[in-house]
Simulated scan of single mutants.
Amino acid sequence: MDNSAWVTNHTGQLEFTLVGFFSQSKHPALLCAAMFVLFLMALSENIILIILIYSNAHLHTPMYFFISQLSLMDVMYISVTVPKMLMDQVMGMNKISAPECGMQMFLYLTLGGSEFFLLAAMAYDRYIAICHPLHYSTLMNHKVWVLLASGCWFLGSVDGFMLTPVTMTFPFCRSREIHHFFCEVSAVMKLSCSDTFLYETLMYLCCVLMLLIPVIVISSSYSFILLTIHRMNSAEGQKKAFMTCSSHMTVIILFYGTSAYTYMIPISYHTPEKNMVLSVFYTIVTPVLNPLIYSLRNKDVTEALKKMWNVESVFQ
């Protein structure tokens, strides 16, 4: 191994080149415009939902608190990767320094990991609400749901702190071209000239654990929920419970499906094209869809939105 490459890697002067999503397209300008529109949609939808939840007293419940946390994560998640990607395309600059790359990697790992656990917390909340409605206010008091949300953020940061420093301290003596539009772990690892097999194995075990724990919580919660819904005598109650849970399950399938492929299939089976398409899905498309799924199918949110719109119309 070239010692100079190792030294360069451990100074702040190392730069990577992000090949980017647009290089694969025949119409990069059109694709860039589409991405910009999706970015603005995700930001506006999630910010409006956060403001709506915190400004309306009727939405100060655990379920909506968790939805607001999900929206906050989505706003941060999309802001970590997309602005850099769009600026690179517009300015014609696709360089990123090692510290910037490490920071981007840490943030997206932290936010992605936090979202895994938050979706599990939301499933647990629905389980308590539907299966133990009489004890809901006791089991899910303000202290409990704030503690659950804090735990989700903490566990997500553990993922970032574990994987980022190790990934970024490997020597990079091959091409400095990252075949991705951001510093995704598997894309960066492909540039290392050292043996990363042990680290990859440990990383996948960590990712399996990060996915497995929330999946067990979600599966258990929804198994009990389905049994409870089946036993309900009221058709209206069944419909309301099913509608509440179906929104959450849609989000889970969208987010977990793409993430499971990215982090549970060995790097050797990944292709840059597939990785980028899937990354676009869970970093851009999912933050756009999440608020729509939770708001358009939810009477409480649509009513609160109408009230806010009416108030703004009066002041105009």
Rank of each mutant, 00 (worst) to 15 (best):
M1N: 10
D2F: 01
D2I: 02
N3R: 13
S4Q: 14
T8E: 10
N9L: 02
H10E: 02
T11W: 07
T11N: 12
G12D: 14
E15N: 11
T17Q: 13
T17V: 10
F21N: 02
F21G: 04
M35E: 01
F36V: 00
V37E: 00
V37T: 08
A42P: 04
E45I: 02
I51C: 05
L52P: 02
S55E: 03
A57F: 01
H60A: 13
Y64C: 04
F65H: 12
F66P: 00
L70V: 11
D74K: 07
V75Y: 03
I78C: 12
S79W: 09
V82I: 15
M85C: 14
L86G: 05
S97G: 11
C101S: 13
L109I: 06
S114H: 07
F117Q: 08
A120H: 03
M122R: 09
M122S: 14
Y124A: 12
Y124H: 11
D125C: 15
C131L: 07
P133M: 12
P133Y: 00
L139V: 07
V144I: 13
V146P: 04
S150G: 12
L155Q: 08
G156P: 04
G160M: 09
F161H: 02
M162I: 06
T169C: 05
C173Q: 09
E177T: 13
E177S: 15
I178P: 04
F181H: 10
E184F: 15
V188N: 06
S194Q: 12
D195V: 11
Y199W: 14
Y204T: 09
L205P: 06
C206N: 10
V208R: 09
S223I: 00
F255Q: 08
T258K: 03
T262H: 09
T262W: 01
Y263T: 07
M264Q: 08
I265T: 13
I267W: 03
S268N: 05
E273W: 02
E273K: 05
L278K: 03
Y282L: 03
P287Q: 12
P291G: 01
N298M: 02
K299H: 14
K299Q: 15
D300E: 14
V301N: 00
E303M: 10
M308W: 06
M308R: 15
N310H: 13
S313V: 14
